[in-house]
């Protein structure tokens, strides 16, 4: 039998990864999903669970800089990698990330449940393409559902950064 296989019930696995720049190590159940590890074990509740099947996008985090649905991600997939959540965008002195400030200025948040995911998707876009047009912005945000805003102010908040406003 392969050494990785164990008899009996679940034994925990050790997950070591970088979360918001900090090396983090903890024991997780083999069937744990990243969204639950972040929210329940690490207290990073800015990452939301809205549908648990990758449709609403509220659970979006950045995995090595790329947006992914943390509800679809077995936690062990994050081993050795870097995860960024909304909590990781605020600077240590409390200064908001430009996108967070822009969302506030623009009134892009209503109920706020999708806001962290929207901001993270926007960040991933701007990190790659600093000056996207409206179409690119809408495309980049198309994996996060918002039922409140009609998306206009969210798109504008990202546009303002893209246009250096």
């Amino acid at each position: 039998m392969h050494p990785g296989l164990k008899d009996g019930n679940m034994s925990t696995l050790k997950l070591s990864f970088k979360v918001n720049g900090k090396l983090t190590s903890l024991a997780v159940a083999p069937n744990a999903l990243l969204v639950d590890v972040l929210r329940e074990d690490l207290g990073l509740t800015g990452t939301k669970a809205g549908c648990r099947e990758g449709e609403c996008g509220a659970c979006t985090v950045l995995l090595d800089g790329e947006p992914v649905n943390s509800c679809l991600l077995p936690a062990m997939k994050a081993a050795g990698r870097e995860v960024t959540t909304i909590e990781g965008l605020v600077q240590e002195d409390g200064t908001l990330h430009a996108l967070q400030q822009s969302f506030t200025d623009q009134g892009a948040s209503q109920c706020g449940f999708c806001t962290p995911a929207m901001i993270l998707n926007a960040k991933a876009l701007l990190d790659k393409a600093p000056h996207p047009d409206e179409g690119q912005i809408r495309q980049a945000l198309s994996g996060v559902l918002c039922r409140c805003t009609g998306y206009r102010k969210i798109v504008q908040a990202v546009q303002n950064i893209a246009q250096g406003k």
């Binding site: 990785g4 296989l5 019930n9 083999p30 069937n31 639950d36 669970a49 648990r52 062990m76």
Partner: peptide
């Protein structure tokens, strides 16, 4: 919300995975 699997394996090579 609980998924019903008990083991999660991360092989380092294709041979390992197949085994």
């Amino acid at each position: 919300r609980e998924l019903e699997f008990g083991q999660y394996l991360t092989p380092g090579s294709l041979d390992d995975a197949l085994q």
